[in-house]
Amino acid sequence: MSRVLPGFGLSLGYTLVYLSLLVLIPLGGLVLKAGTLTLAEFWQIATTEQAMASYRVTFGASFAAAVINAFFGLIVAWVLVRYPFPGKSLVDAFVDLPFALPTAVAGITLATLYAGNGWIGRHLEPLGIKVAYTPYGIVVALAFVTLPFIVRTLQPVIEDIEPEVEEAAASLGASRWLTFTRIILPAIFPALLTGFTLAFSRAIGEFGSVIFIAGNLPMVSEITPLLIIAKLEQQDVVGATALAVVMLVISFVMLLTINALQWWAANRHKGRAA
């Protein structure tokens, strides 16, 4: 540690105070509130039929959205890194649109597009597919919001694959498909998993883009964050707290998973070299 550079106490002190006021004390408040419940009460509130249904909708739709993005996101990232085409840098910048566009705007637009009379819904309805105001709508909204996570996690890793490795595989007689499944896919797999987890983690907490397209039918298309708001509006603070604790615990687990995945991706080949 350098002793000549100034401002350690000031900067760390400010960081800790700020973090405490904004994050730690509020989290502490939630934990204290949850502490007023007995474990049995907590369990009872957190596992009501409505709550369980909301978990199923939230996690099911988030998982589906992350799977869709893992597939298309991989193709988009691959094409953006490997293939030249006109306007590529524009398209590349455009991928971040879901990060920049407020979720409420995405929500009302997707709801309008996928409604029975919308540009897309109009063509799906005759096929018997209803998207808006069903759980499928939730999947669409979540896939929209989380697309950049997968693309942006994959891009640098695909860029880092040394062409020599692929050339070596080819010179050893591997077909292109074999090279992809045996050489490239294993190389990018940790990043794909990290991107998947980031997308999934963001999706389970997402609210703004979902509520407009979900229809919000209890037991069918009601996500957990909406259930929390509903409880708050009914002045059921304790019920909302219990559900918030469940969400928070899952957030922590996701955060740890992401950290562990990134650590694994960075270190997985070190042991073998030694």
Binding site: I25, L30, K33, G205, P225, L232, F252, L255
Partner: peptide, 18 residues
């Protein structure tokens, strides 16, 4: 990193509790 992982709804609720 935590605020990125917490659902915005839960974040808002933290301050209602306070």
């Amino acid at each position: 990193d935590l605020p990125f992982a917490v659902s915005p709804v839960v974040a808002g609720m933290l301050f209602i509790l306070l």
